[in-house]
């Protein structure tokens, strides 16, 4: 019970930290998602304006825009979080404070992640409301919405664990932001966030299905669009990767903290 209170308090503190610099939060988290969508919208408008009735790999203009609307929502909820604070803690030696607290490092950052997710969920709902109001989204049922968001939260756990891993590599690396940028680029490219995977060469997609990437954006988007055919498979694949990253984080942390305390930084 006492521990639950600590979690709750940490979430509240993190919430106010995220919202303290609203402009920053907007520019850092929401802005990129909007600009990304804006560019893709412009690009596909330009492509389809030449042949308005063209269908590319099953996507007409409306379908393509719909796809990208959902990548915007998925991106906010499933891949918004970054481990910047976490790696800062390690790099600036603030980790010593956690070693003294009766509240663990991972607990602190996980609580902070939850708080971030709630914030992102609210933003996603508002965005969704706006998109519905201007009529960009066509078909939507409450059940797909619920399943879609639940699935996104599930995926976000995996994303969080990946981010966490990049953060705690800070025990060895002077800077870890490059890892996160690489992760961002690779995930953006391989998850279907830039263009739907149907447009990729088939062999390449067959290979991608063995990686966790398509499950970060492409499959969640499918779920939101009402296509549940791969839901079970996606669920299991993500579970597998969550398991792997979890164990990896555990091992890396153990080794890192041993190094850290030994060096007496």
């Amino acid at each position: 019970m006492a521990n639950l209170l600590k979690w709750w308090q940490t979430m509240r503190i993190s919430w106010s930290r995220y919202t303290a610099y609203r402009l920053n939060f907007f520019l850092q988290v929401i802005g990129p998602a909007i600009v990304f969508f804006f560019i893709k919208y412009s690009l596909w408008s330009a492509i389809f304006s030449q042949e308005p009735h063209k269908v590319i790999q099953g996507y007409d203009f409306q379908g393509m825009i719909n796809y990208h609307v959902w990548t915007l929502i998925v991106g906010l909820v499933a891949q918004g979080h970054t481990a910047m604070n976490l790696s800062e803690d390690i790099r600036l030696g603030r980790i010593s404070t956690y070693l003294i607290y009766p509240f663990n490092f991972w607990e602190f950052h996980t609580a902070s992640f939850f708080s971030f997710q709630i914030l992102q969920f609210c933003i996603a709902l508002i965005s969704l409301g706006i998109l519905l109001a201007i009529g960009v989204i066509s078909s939507l049922t409450l059940s797909t919405l619920c399943i879609g968001f639940l699935f996104c939260f599930y995926v976000s756990l995996f994303w969080y664990l990946l981010q966490y891993l990049t953060g705690i590599l800070g025990f060895w690396l002077e800077e870890t932001w490059m890892l996160r940028v690489i992760l961002q680029i690779v995930a953006g490219f391989l998850s279907g966030a830039i263009i739907p995977l149907e447009l990729y060469p088939q062999k390449f997609v067959a290979f991608l299905n063995y990686t966790p990437f398509p499950y970060l954006t492409y499959y969640p988007v499918k779920v939101f669009s009402g296509d549940y055919s791969h839901l079970m498979q996606a669920f299991l694949v993500i579970a597998f990767w969550i398991g792997i990253t979890f164990v990896l984080n555990h091992l890396v942390w153990k080794k890192g903290i041993k190094n850290y305390t030994a060096a007496g930084m």
Binding site: W172, L173, M178, L179, I182, I185, V186, G188
Partner: peptide, 16 residues
């Protein structure tokens, strides 16, 4: 290590 990662980061970006 940073040195290598920075090069890698740019190349990944170019490819994508």
């Amino acid at each position: 290590l940073n040195f290598v990662l920075l090069i890698l980061m740019d190349i990944v970006f170019y490819i994508s």
